[in-house]
Design a protein around this nucleic acid. Structure first.
Lengths: 342, 342
DNA sequence: CTGTTAGCGCGTTCAT
DNA sequence: ATGAACGCGCTAACAG
């Protein structure tokens, strides 16, 4: 299929009666070319339908002008945020006229280093970053360009975009406190999802604990896995803890909570308050409307790609570190039901 | 950054005392190499950490061993199925040791042809295919390899994977009929989403009409856009049509429906039945549990990539055309409420 | 302002 | 069974 050899710079050079280098310079502008010859070259390019061959360009220039996003495999369960990150990264990538490669994320760094060393990509974006992440260590040690959506414990010299989960959970607790709730649950991600020291999990817990202490509230953390049956655990908890009248959910942990509440006949927000820390694209799909702290996932993906590409284009650029916050959007949390008050 | 020139075949050749061509053949196996020299080469490769440079390889072999998936931009609204397709395509791509490029989908074909002609990708996967799609026409005319997730009106010589929406809607109507419903709504996608002749929209409607006729049912189609306020239209409809006791939803149109039903105080499934045609990864997140017809989005993405790559690897291979169906999973639809019966 | 030329790293043909 | 050498398409250094 497609046996026709594509048109090259040599064809353009012949057609317009100039040297190949002139064609190259007419395109790149790295050398001045007389208006007349440039016109002739442009015309020949249009007529023959020439497109510079990227692999040849990459071979010569030692740069593929592509970045790779390492993506968690999600056959059964939907890592929605990851997908939104990807959309954002795609936008930035195409704006800078780069290509976006997507690779399957593995726990060990070899695959990542491979895409870099084979010259498929000039830099990589990592997600689901752990506080201590061997991929990051390896990339840093080898001096490869990368950026993180998320961050580690030690981020010296690293470019990242992260969401301030600690602050978000803290804000959520305060919001619920002000509504009158005195016993709050945090539905956090189970270690099975992204490891025990997954940044958002640890930092959310930290924010939860400090807010509880500050306000002298009772609180419980539930770790939610991805299995469909996990909602039973949530249900058991709600039965065990009748004084708990509100919860904070991370990512899709709102789902088992809403299912459990429904099965217990508890309405949201009349009988139970929820604050979901989640991307707006997801909360738009949830009934009943939840009070949320909006995680700007699209923007994070966008920025993650942008700070990486900017560094690729300019070696001197220092790393960029961004810690974003999201607004609290009150939509459904109410005061605790009277019957639950002492 | 990374000023160290990477190790090449020349380095391996020197280190193991053979010619570069021998290194190449030791790797590709396209010429017999004595066991002893092969060993020496392998050792040198391991010791120096050699990786074949992909751009060089692509330049020489005229194949990038990459495919590109054209992806709808989704800044505000979540095209969830597209994301699941992507995950599936990623799995197949990495299994075949190809790379997956993601490009922003545009209405006109120029960007697609560009990624092919610049040698960035050997073939492309298109989604959101219309019955008459100019991208498809262009690719076919130019003889470029591609596969579709979806299909056109005329699919001569085209490789595709599609879901049988006509059959799914028909099945859904029959299910609701057997439960006793006599007035059913179809929540279809608005033309604003993927054009007026978007395949799934048209075929869903066709399946709806034929089933209604067959069973002598009353039915209404509502076109749901992506705006958050559209649920009001659904709400108005439900108020206008009190005899309508069930609905079939496509993709995320379940969201405005559930919101409207909730605001009207109608419970699912006690007061209203829903059959959602949707990927299982999404329905897992919905409360209340909905009866669904599972669209195997992950598998579709997987197959879309696979049939493309197989053709790339074997020119002689005829196109593959797959029309998938999904099982009806009864979880929440019940008989119509008595008060609604005449 | 323009032309000539030498590689970038790899695959493959030709010669041994 | 192995080596030498050429060229894929492009960029940049070196002439003029």
């Amino acid at each position: 299929m497609r046996r026709t050899r594509s048109v090259t710079m040599v064809d353009i050079a012949k057609r317009s009666g100039v040297a190949v280098s002139t064609v190259s310079y007419a395109l790149s502008g790295k050398r001045s070319v007389s208006a007349e010859t440039r016109e002739r070259v442009k015309r020949a390019i249009d007529e023959l339908g020439f497109r510079p061959h990227e692999p040849a360009r990459a071979l010569k220039s030692r740069a593929s002008r592509a970045i790779s996003l390492f993506f968690p495999t999600a056959r059964d369960t939907l890592e929605i945020e990851s997908h939104i990150f990807l959309s954002g990264a795609l936008e930035a990538t195409s704006e800078f006229d780069y290509s976006l490669l997507v690779s399957t994320a593995t726990h060990d760094p070899s695959g990542i280093v491979a895409t870099l060393e084979t010259g498929r990509a000039d830099g990589v974006i990592l997600m689901e970053v752990r506080l201590s992440d061997e991929r990051v260590e390896k990339l840093r040690a080898d001096g490869h360009p990368f950026s993180l959506i998320g961050r580690c414990e030690d981020n010296d010299g690293i470019s990242y975009v992260d969401f301030d989960f600690e602050d978000a959970v803290c804000t959520a607790v305060h919001h619920l406190y002000e509504l009158g709730h005195r016993h709050v649950a945090l539905l956090n991600r189970a270690p099975s999802i992204a490891g025990a020291d997954y940044g958002p999990t640890v930092r959310s817990h930290a924010g939860f604990q400090s807010a509880l202490r500050e306000l002298s509230l009772e609180g419980d953390q539930l770790l939610c896995g991805t299995s469909g049956a996990q909602y039973i655990e949530v249900l058991r908890f709600l039965e065990r803890a009748p004084t708990c009248t509100a919860a904070i959910t991370l990512s899709v942990t709102y789902a088992p909570l809403l299912a459990a509440l429904r099965d217990l006949g508890r309405r949201v927000p009349e009988d139970f308050s929820v604050v979901a820390i989640i991307a707006s694209q997801v909360s738009d799909l949830v009934t009943p409307p939840l009070t949320t702290i909006d995680m700007p996932a699209y923007e994070m993906g966008r920025l993650g790609a942008e700070i990486l590409i900017r560094r690729l284009m300019d070696d001197e650029l220092p790393p960029t570190q961004l810690l974003l916050r999201g607004p609290l959007q009150v939509r459904s949390s109410g005061p605790p039901p009277r019957r639950s008050r002492p």
